[in-house]
Simulated assay, not measured.
Amino acid sequence: MQIRHTTNPTDVKAYTTERLRSEFLIESLFVEDQLKLTYTHYDRMIVGGAVPVKGSIELSAGDALKTEYFLERREVALLNIGGEALIAVDGETHELSRLDALYVGMGAKNVTLQSKDTANPARIYICSALAHATYPTRKISVETANPLHLGSIETSNERTIYQYIHADGVQSCQLMLGVTCLKPGNVWNTMPAHVHDRRMEAYLYFDVKPESRVFHFMGEPSETRHLVVANEQAVISPPWSVHSGAGTGNYSFIWSMAGENYTFKDMDIVPMDTLK
Protein backbone atom coordinates (compact mmCIF):
# COMPACT_ATOMS: atom_id res chain seq x y z
CA MET A 1 0.00 0.00 0.00
CA GLN A 2 1.32 3.44 -0.94
CA ILE A 3 1.12 6.18 1.69
CA ARG A 4 0.41 9.80 0.72
CA HIS A 5 0.77 12.45 3.40
CA THR A 6 -1.09 15.75 3.51
CA THR A 7 0.46 18.89 2.04
CA ASN A 8 0.43 22.58 2.87
CA PRO A 9 -1.29 24.73 0.20
CA THR A 10 1.38 27.40 0.58
CA ASP A 11 4.12 24.88 -0.13
CA VAL A 12 2.24 23.41 -3.11
CA LYS A 13 2.60 26.74 -4.93
CA ALA A 14 6.30 25.94 -5.38
CA TYR A 15 5.87 22.31 -6.53
CA THR A 16 7.25 21.18 -9.87
CA THR A 17 5.08 19.14 -12.23
CA GLU A 18 6.85 15.98 -11.08
CA ARG A 19 6.20 16.78 -7.42
CA LEU A 20 2.54 17.59 -8.07
CA ARG A 21 2.07 14.26 -9.82
CA SER A 22 3.86 12.29 -7.09
CA GLU A 23 1.68 13.85 -4.37
CA PHE A 24 -1.76 13.94 -6.00
CA LEU A 25 -1.89 11.59 -9.01
CA ILE A 26 -2.32 7.81 -8.73
CA GLU A 27 -1.13 6.50 -12.08
CA SER A 28 -1.50 2.72 -11.68
CA LEU A 29 -4.62 1.25 -10.10
CA PHE A 30 -5.56 -1.65 -12.36
CA VAL A 31 -2.98 -4.42 -12.66
CA GLU A 32 -4.01 -8.01 -13.36
CA ASP A 33 -4.21 -10.20 -10.25
CA GLN A 34 -2.96 -7.47 -7.93
CA LEU A 35 -4.63 -5.36 -5.26
CA LYS A 36 -3.33 -1.78 -5.66
CA LEU A 37 -4.10 0.54 -2.74
CA THR A 38 -3.12 4.10 -1.84
CA TYR A 39 -3.68 5.47 1.66
CA THR A 40 -4.04 9.23 1.84
CA HIS A 41 -3.88 11.12 5.13
CA TYR A 42 -6.61 13.41 3.78
CA ASP A 43 -9.51 12.09 5.86
CA ARG A 44 -7.75 8.69 5.91
CA MET A 45 -9.28 7.66 2.58
CA ILE A 46 -7.99 4.58 0.78
CA VAL A 47 -8.23 4.49 -3.02
CA GLY A 48 -7.44 1.41 -5.06
CA GLY A 49 -8.20 -1.01 -7.84
CA ALA A 50 -8.21 -4.71 -8.67
CA VAL A 51 -8.37 -6.80 -11.85
CA PRO A 52 -8.95 -10.43 -10.81
CA VAL A 53 -8.08 -12.81 -13.68
CA LYS A 54 -6.51 -16.07 -12.50
CA GLY A 55 -8.51 -16.25 -9.28
CA SER A 56 -10.04 -14.20 -6.51
CA ILE A 57 -8.37 -11.25 -4.77
CA GLU A 58 -8.91 -10.67 -1.06
CA LEU A 59 -9.52 -7.12 0.15
CA SER A 60 -6.63 -6.89 2.57
CA ALA A 61 -4.19 -4.23 3.67
CA GLY A 62 -1.67 -6.61 5.23
CA ASP A 63 -0.31 -4.97 8.36
CA ALA A 64 -0.63 -1.40 7.02
CA LEU A 65 -3.79 -0.63 9.01
CA LYS A 66 -2.69 -2.46 12.16
CA THR A 67 -6.12 -4.10 12.39
CA GLU A 68 -7.21 -7.72 12.24
CA TYR A 69 -9.08 -7.24 8.95
CA PHE A 70 -9.63 -4.46 6.40
CA LEU A 71 -13.11 -3.36 7.49
CA GLU A 72 -12.60 -3.61 11.23
CA ARG A 73 -12.88 0.19 11.52
CA ARG A 74 -13.75 1.07 7.92
CA GLU A 75 -16.46 1.04 5.26
CA VAL A 76 -15.86 0.54 1.54
CA ALA A 77 -17.47 1.12 -1.85
CA LEU A 78 -16.59 -1.13 -4.78
CA LEU A 79 -17.57 0.04 -8.28
CA ASN A 80 -17.04 -2.10 -11.37
CA ILE A 81 -15.94 -0.49 -14.65
CA GLY A 82 -15.08 -3.75 -16.46
CA GLY A 83 -16.61 -7.15 -17.13
CA GLU A 84 -18.96 -8.92 -14.72
CA ALA A 85 -17.66 -9.02 -11.15
CA LEU A 86 -18.41 -11.44 -8.33
CA ILE A 87 -17.85 -9.95 -4.87
CA ALA A 88 -18.26 -12.21 -1.85
CA VAL A 89 -18.90 -10.58 1.54
CA ASP A 90 -18.70 -13.02 4.44
CA GLY A 91 -19.91 -15.83 2.20
CA GLU A 92 -22.68 -13.95 0.34
CA THR A 93 -21.90 -13.30 -3.33
CA HIS A 94 -23.00 -10.16 -5.18
CA GLU A 95 -22.82 -9.90 -8.97
CA LEU A 96 -21.88 -6.50 -10.37
CA SER A 97 -22.30 -5.51 -14.01
CA ARG A 98 -20.46 -2.53 -15.45
CA LEU A 99 -21.15 0.63 -13.39
CA ASP A 100 -22.76 -1.36 -10.59
CA ALA A 101 -21.46 -0.61 -7.11
CA LEU A 102 -21.48 -2.40 -3.78
CA TYR A 103 -21.37 -0.70 -0.39
CA VAL A 104 -19.96 -2.83 2.43
CA GLY A 105 -20.21 -1.60 6.00
CA MET A 106 -17.83 -1.78 8.92
CA GLY A 107 -17.35 -5.23 10.44
CA ALA A 108 -17.42 -7.43 7.32
CA LYS A 109 -14.44 -9.74 7.79
CA ASN A 110 -13.99 -11.47 4.44
CA VAL A 111 -14.35 -9.61 1.14
CA THR A 112 -13.09 -11.26 -2.05
CA LEU A 113 -13.15 -9.99 -5.62
CA GLN A 114 -13.48 -12.23 -8.66
CA SER A 115 -14.28 -12.00 -12.38
CA LYS A 116 -17.19 -13.97 -13.79
CA ASP A 117 -15.44 -14.32 -17.17
CA THR A 118 -11.65 -14.26 -17.11
CA ALA A 119 -11.62 -13.39 -20.81
CA ASN A 120 -13.43 -10.16 -19.90
CA PRO A 121 -12.22 -9.45 -16.37
CA ALA A 122 -13.79 -7.09 -13.90
CA ARG A 123 -12.05 -3.81 -13.14
CA ILE A 124 -13.04 -2.92 -9.60
CA TYR A 125 -12.46 0.54 -8.16
CA ILE A 126 -12.11 0.62 -4.40
CA CYS A 127 -12.78 3.56 -2.09
CA SER A 128 -12.73 3.24 1.69
CA ALA A 129 -13.20 5.64 4.60
CA LEU A 130 -13.18 5.38 8.38
CA ALA A 131 -16.48 4.34 9.98
CA HIS A 132 -18.07 4.69 13.42
CA ALA A 133 -21.14 2.47 12.91
CA THR A 134 -22.25 -0.42 10.73
CA TYR A 135 -24.57 0.08 7.78
CA PRO A 136 -25.89 -2.87 5.75
CA THR A 137 -24.26 -4.13 2.58
CA ARG A 138 -26.14 -2.75 -0.43
CA LYS A 139 -25.80 -3.15 -4.18
CA ILE A 140 -26.47 -0.08 -6.35
CA SER A 141 -26.85 -0.18 -10.13
CA VAL A 142 -26.52 2.86 -12.36
CA GLU A 143 -30.23 2.45 -13.18
CA THR A 144 -31.19 2.89 -9.53
CA ALA A 145 -28.72 5.68 -8.76
CA ASN A 146 -30.14 9.19 -8.49
CA PRO A 147 -29.48 11.06 -11.78
CA LEU A 148 -28.82 14.80 -11.95
CA HIS A 149 -28.76 16.28 -15.45
CA LEU A 150 -26.59 19.38 -15.51
CA GLY A 151 -24.91 21.75 -17.94
CA SER A 152 -25.48 22.34 -21.63
CA ILE A 153 -23.78 21.84 -24.98
CA GLU A 154 -23.38 25.63 -25.23
CA THR A 155 -21.03 25.61 -22.23
CA SER A 156 -19.42 22.26 -23.16
CA ASN A 157 -20.45 20.65 -19.86
CA GLU A 158 -23.64 18.69 -20.51
CA ARG A 159 -23.39 15.74 -18.14
CA THR A 160 -25.28 13.37 -15.88
CA ILE A 161 -24.24 12.91 -12.27
CA TYR A 162 -25.32 9.57 -10.81
CA GLN A 163 -25.45 9.62 -7.01
CA TYR A 164 -24.93 6.18 -5.49
CA ILE A 165 -23.95 6.60 -1.83
CA HIS A 166 -25.32 9.82 -0.33
CA ALA A 167 -27.71 11.20 2.25
CA ASP A 168 -30.83 10.44 0.20
CA GLY A 169 -29.59 7.13 -1.24
CA VAL A 170 -27.57 4.22 0.09
CA GLN A 171 -26.44 5.16 3.59
CA SER A 172 -22.91 5.16 4.98
CA CYS A 173 -21.05 6.72 7.89
CA GLN A 174 -19.19 9.37 5.87
CA LEU A 175 -18.36 7.91 2.46
CA MET A 176 -20.11 9.47 -0.55
CA LEU A 177 -19.73 8.14 -4.09
CA GLY A 178 -21.11 8.57 -7.57
CA VAL A 179 -20.33 8.66 -11.28
CA THR A 180 -20.35 11.60 -13.68
CA CYS A 181 -20.70 10.92 -17.43
CA LEU A 182 -20.15 13.69 -19.97
CA LYS A 183 -22.23 13.68 -23.12
CA PRO A 184 -20.40 13.50 -26.49
CA GLY A 185 -19.04 16.90 -27.52
CA ASN A 186 -18.66 18.05 -23.90
CA VAL A 187 -15.38 18.36 -22.02
CA TRP A 188 -15.83 20.34 -18.77
CA ASN A 189 -16.84 18.34 -15.69
CA THR A 190 -17.31 21.30 -13.35
CA MET A 191 -17.13 25.04 -13.97
CA PRO A 192 -17.45 27.34 -12.13
CA ALA A 193 -15.20 25.42 -9.78
CA HIS A 194 -15.79 24.92 -6.07
CA VAL A 195 -14.08 23.83 -2.88
CA HIS A 196 -15.45 22.03 0.17
CA ASP A 197 -13.04 22.68 3.00
CA ARG A 198 -14.80 20.19 5.26
CA ARG A 199 -14.07 17.08 3.16
CA MET A 200 -11.62 15.72 0.64
CA GLU A 201 -12.45 14.12 -2.70
CA ALA A 202 -10.92 11.59 -5.06
CA TYR A 203 -11.55 11.31 -8.80
CA LEU A 204 -11.05 8.24 -10.98
CA TYR A 205 -11.13 9.23 -14.64
CA PHE A 206 -12.21 6.45 -17.02
CA ASP A 207 -13.62 5.98 -20.52
CA VAL A 208 -10.81 8.29 -21.66
CA LYS A 209 -9.72 7.32 -25.17
CA PRO A 210 -6.06 6.23 -25.49
CA GLU A 211 -5.19 9.32 -27.51
CA SER A 212 -7.07 11.66 -25.13
CA ARG A 213 -6.15 13.31 -21.85
CA VAL A 214 -7.98 15.17 -19.11
CA PHE A 215 -6.47 18.38 -17.72
CA HIS A 216 -7.43 18.27 -14.04
CA PHE A 217 -7.26 21.68 -12.39
CA MET A 218 -6.34 21.88 -8.72
CA GLY A 219 -4.89 24.29 -6.18
CA GLU A 220 -6.25 27.22 -4.24
CA PRO A 221 -8.70 29.33 -6.29
CA SER A 222 -6.18 32.17 -6.44
CA GLU A 223 -3.28 29.89 -7.41
CA THR A 224 -4.40 27.04 -9.68
CA ARG A 225 -2.27 24.22 -11.07
CA HIS A 226 -3.08 21.29 -13.32
CA LEU A 227 -2.39 17.59 -13.77
CA VAL A 228 -2.49 15.81 -17.13
CA VAL A 229 -4.45 12.60 -16.53
CA ALA A 230 -4.77 9.48 -18.70
CA ASN A 231 -7.41 6.76 -18.66
CA GLU A 232 -8.04 4.98 -15.35
CA GLN A 233 -5.83 7.27 -13.32
CA ALA A 234 -6.99 8.83 -10.06
CA VAL A 235 -6.50 12.23 -8.44
CA ILE A 236 -6.44 13.02 -4.72
CA SER A 237 -8.12 16.38 -4.15
CA PRO A 238 -7.34 18.14 -0.83
CA PRO A 239 -10.13 20.01 0.98
CA TRP A 240 -8.52 23.37 0.16
CA SER A 241 -8.29 22.67 -3.57
CA VAL A 242 -10.56 23.27 -6.53
CA HIS A 243 -11.23 20.15 -8.58
CA SER A 244 -12.33 20.60 -12.13
CA GLY A 245 -11.32 19.10 -15.44
CA ALA A 246 -11.38 19.64 -19.18
CA GLY A 247 -10.66 16.83 -21.62
CA THR A 248 -9.60 16.56 -25.22
CA GLY A 249 -12.79 14.51 -25.61
CA ASN A 250 -15.69 13.40 -23.43
CA TYR A 251 -15.03 11.01 -20.53
CA SER A 252 -16.47 9.74 -17.25
CA PHE A 253 -15.23 9.78 -13.69
CA ILE A 254 -16.02 8.29 -10.30
CA TRP A 255 -16.08 10.81 -7.46
CA SER A 256 -15.86 9.90 -3.81
CA MET A 257 -15.75 12.07 -0.70
CA ALA A 258 -15.10 11.71 3.01
CA GLY A 259 -14.88 14.19 5.84
CA GLU A 260 -16.92 16.44 8.08
CA ASN A 261 -20.32 16.87 6.44
CA TYR A 262 -22.53 14.24 4.83
CA THR A 263 -24.30 16.37 2.22
CA PHE A 264 -23.71 16.63 -1.50
CA LYS A 265 -24.41 20.39 -1.49
CA ASP A 266 -21.72 21.28 1.05
CA MET A 267 -19.53 23.34 -1.27
CA ASP A 268 -18.30 26.88 -1.73
CA ILE A 269 -18.61 28.06 -5.34
CA VAL A 270 -15.63 29.97 -6.72
CA PRO A 271 -16.83 32.88 -8.93
CA MET A 272 -15.17 32.94 -12.33
CA ASP A 273 -13.79 36.45 -11.78
CA THR A 274 -11.83 35.30 -8.72
CA LEU A 275 -10.35 32.16 -10.28
CA LYS A 276 -6.70 32.58 -11.23
Results as ranks from 00 to 15, higher is better:
Asp117Ser: 11
Val142Ser: 12
Pro239Arg: 04
Lys265Asn: 15
Thr248Gln: 08
Tyr125Ser: 14
Phe70Ser: 11
Lys54Gly: 14
Val270Tyr: 00
Gln114Cys: 09
Asn8Phe: 15
Arg198Gly: 15
Leu148Lys: 15
Gly107Asn: 03
Glu158His: 11
Thr6Asn: 12
Phe253Thr: 04
Ile124Trp: 00
Leu175Cys: 06
Gln163Trp: 07
Pro210Arg: 06
Val47Tyr: 03
Asn186Tyr: 10
Ala167Asp: 03
Leu113Thr: 01
Ile126Met: 10
Ser115Leu: 12
Arg98Glu: 08
Gly48Met: 06
Ala119Met: 09
Gly48Tyr: 01
Lys209His: 14
Thr7Val: 12
Val76Arg: 00
Pro9His: 11
Asp266Trp: 10
Pro210Ile: 05
Gln171Pro: 11
Leu177Asp: 01
Thr248His: 14
Trp188Lys: 13
Thr134Pro: 04
Leu25Val: 03
Leu37Ile: 05
Ile236Ser: 10
Glu201Gln: 14
Gln2Ala: 13
Asp43Val: 02
Gly49Leu: 02
His149Ser: 15
Ala119Gly: 12
Asn8Val: 08
Ala258Gln: 02
Arg21His: 12
Met267Asp: 01
Ala14Val: 14
Ser115Val: 01
Glu84Pro: 15
His226Asp: 07
Tyr69Pro: 05
Val31Arg: 03
Val208Ala: 11
Leu150Pro: 03
Ile124Lys: 09
Cys173Ser: 02
Val47Ala: 10
Thr180Asn: 08
Ile46Tyr: 08
Leu148His: 12
Val76Tyr: 03
Asp197Thr: 13
Val47Ser: 08
Gln233Ser: 09
Leu86Arg: 14
Gly151Leu: 04
Val142Ile: 15
Trp188Arg: 10
His41Asp: 10
Ile161Met: 01
Ala122His: 05
Tyr42Leu: 03
Ala246Met: 12
Met218Pro: 07
Gly178Thr: 07
Glu220Trp: 07
Asp268Ala: 15
Gly185Lys: 02
Leu130Pro: 13
His243Cys: 05
Thr40His: 03
Val104Gln: 03
His41Lys: 13
Ala133Tyr: 00
Asp90Ile: 11
Lys276His: 08
Asp197Leu: 13
Tyr203His: 06
Ile153Cys: 01
Ser97Asp: 10
Ile124Met: 05
Thr10Arg: 13
Leu59Trp: 01
Thr190Trp: 08
Arg213Ala: 15
Leu25His: 02
Arg21Asn: 14
Leu65Trp: 04
Leu99Trp: 09
Pro184Gln: 07
Thr274Leu: 07
Tyr262Thr: 05
Val208Asn: 01
Glu201His: 15
Thr263Met: 12
Asp207Arg: 09
Pro271Tyr: 01
His194Asn: 11
Tyr125Thr: 06
Asn120Leu: 10
Leu65Arg: 02
Ile57Tyr: 08
Ser128Gln: 00
Leu182Pro: 01
Ala133Cys: 09
Met200Cys: 09
Thr38Asn: 10
Glu260Phe: 00
Lys209Gly: 14
Glu232Asp: 04
Ala131Arg: 02
Glu154Leu: 03
Gln2Cys: 14
Gln171Lys: 13
Ala193Gly: 13
Ala88His: 12
Asn146Met: 09
Leu35Ile: 07
Gly169Val: 07
Tyr69Cys: 02
Leu29Val: 07
Ser212Asn: 10
Phe217Asn: 15
Ile81Asn: 00
Gly82Phe: 08
Asp168Glu: 13
Val51Arg: 04
Glu260His: 00
Glu68Asn: 06
Pro184Tyr: 04
Tyr164Glu: 07
Thr118Lys: 13
Thr93Ala: 14
Pro271Gln: 00
Val270Thr: 00
